[in-house]
């Protein structure tokens, strides 16, 4: 089932066009990685998908029952102070606010948060202070919060940028498990090209002159892919 489709969208940042004629589509259970150098418009694209920014031309089509506010989102290195007093449970629960009209947490919301915590194996940490957790644990907490706000589409903005190699591997395992069990669609933005491509189903490469969209296999065989993945495909 198709979740999201973008037709020839263009968008600007500070009056400069940074996205030009980008098209892609994404189905449930797929992982799309969005790669490109700094300034190639990755963050702008995310803002357009989340409905925080208007496109200059082209349109983004969502599946019938999906609204921009129902998309789970993991922000790029969230600037959260380590002295911020917040327990894991409080943070995960806050992910359920988006779709709710009730001012206080309902039973369903508490249940959603509980499921999300047990899915990412952080239930034993629910009373711990967020600032005292390791980078990998913090990332899992934020993921649990993200899936509380949406169960269909999840957008991860540079999720592994601040993780060490072991935590990165664990993170990818988590994402794979999430896609397999929940049939959720994931968009992952990254500048670490070779790592990201190896875990994804589809690739959207935002280049200076042209963009590439296709399956991972097609990307590996494309001129752009060969240039960026370099040694891997030649070896």
């Amino acid at each position: 089932m198709e979740i999201l489709r973008a037709n020839n969208i263009s968008a600007s940042y500070d009056k400069n066009i940074v996205l030009k004629n980008v098209s892609f589509s994404l189905c449930a259970g797929e992982l799309l990685s969005v790669i490109g150098e700094n300034g190639s418009g990755k963050s702008t694209l995310i803002k357009c998908i989340l409905g925080l920014k208007d496109t200059v031309s082209g349109d983004i089509l969502y599946a019938d029952d999906l609204k921009p506010c129902e998309i789970g989102y993991l922000p790029q290195n969230p600037e959260i102070d380590s002295s911020f007093p917040a327990s894991v449970r409080e943070i995960v629960l806050s992910g359920t606010i988006a779709g709710s009209k009730s001012l206080f947490y309902t039973k369903t919301q508490k249940e959603t948060a509980k499921k999300a915590m047990s899915f990412f194996d952080i239930e034993n940490l629910k009373k711990s202070c967020f600032g005292e957790l390791s980078g990998g644990q913090q990332q899992r907490v934020l993921l649990a919060r993200a899936i509380c706000s949406a169960e269909k589409l999840l957008i991860l903005d540079e999720p592994v940028a601040s993780l060490d190699p072991i935590a990165t591997a664990e993170f990818y395992t988590c994402i794979k498990k999430l896609i397999k069990k929940k049939k959720i669609a994931v968009i992952m933005v990254s500048h670490n090209i070779s790592d990201t491509v190896s875990v994804s189903d589809k690739v959207l490469h935002l280049g200076e002159k042209s963009n590439f969209f296709g399956t991972t296999e097609e990307y590996r065989n494309s001129t752009l892919g060969k240039r960026f993945l370099g040694g891997e495909t030649n070896a």
Partner: peptide, 22 residues
Amino acid sequence: ILFYNRIFSITFDERFAKATGQ
């Protein structure tokens, strides 16, 4: 008291709150 949960959400991570439509 009425907006306590929402105040927590924007205090902790305003960007996430904004992105998820609060």
